[in-house]
Design a protein around this nucleic acid. Structure first.
Lengths: 109, 109
DNA sequence: GGCATATATGTCATATTTGGCATATTTGGC
DNA sequence: GCCAAATATGCCAAATATGACATATATGCC
């Protein structure tokens, strides 16, 4: 794992308590977090692709700008449920969600 | 949508409040629910594939038998986060999760 | 049918997630 | 550098998910 992604993980506020990998996370925890980050990135891409500000998008999905920011950052306080519902609201299909998740696995499996 | 799946949806305790599709659900709500059901089915298949009872599996993931039953049934009270974490615990890879999600889309998109 | 094991369903106290708000920081034009 | 628009971060009360438990129903064997 290269430093770019590592930095992204660390900065995302993850100081989990597992016992395994590079930051003290379990393989499962790491996979889970990476999926979230992938969904967050996908969300941001879609939102920007539609020329929406976080505020505008938040209104669309009846959330708040701060939560949207957290979604896109993969904050520990946001659920995958919320990410998925938000992506669906932006017009993503389940298959596209699947693609995002699959792509969270650059490496092993 | 044929009656088999329809029944499965109804029986899963979903009497949502949307406004669109056959049961009063939005296209997004329907997609979300189908993803959950797909993940639940996948979980059950994997669990059984490993010859684990719900009780045994519940112990593995520090949950309870009742929650496992709800997971597999796609109960409204279970989150996709929990389903995904559980699947990972059973050894599924993100790519396999993605496959399950993608397969929730028999039809449109 | 009776019995044992597995799964389903209902409820509840506790834990986590959520929207909302205030405020800080970043970004881009001038 | 100043300013405005966008995004990030911290916090909190309300909403939702969670494990646990009791109990009901199913499933298979005798």
């Amino acid at each position: 794992m290269r430093t770019a992604k590592r930095k992204k993980l660390e900065s995302a506020g993850w100081k989990v308590g597992g016992a395994d990998e590079f930051l003290g996370l379990t393989a499962d925890e790491a996979a889970y977090i990476e999926m979230k980050l992938a969904l967050g990135t996908s969300l941001r891409d879609r939102r920007i692709g539609k020329n929406l500000s976080q505020v505008e998008f938040a209104r669309m999905v009846k959330s708040s700008q701060s939560r949207v920011a957290k979604m896109e950052a993969g904050d520990p306080s946001v659920s995958i449920d919320l990410l998925m519902k938000s992506l669906l609201a932006l017009g993503a299909s389940p298959k596209e969600l699947a693609r995002a998740i699959a792509s969270s696995t650059t490496h092993a499996a």
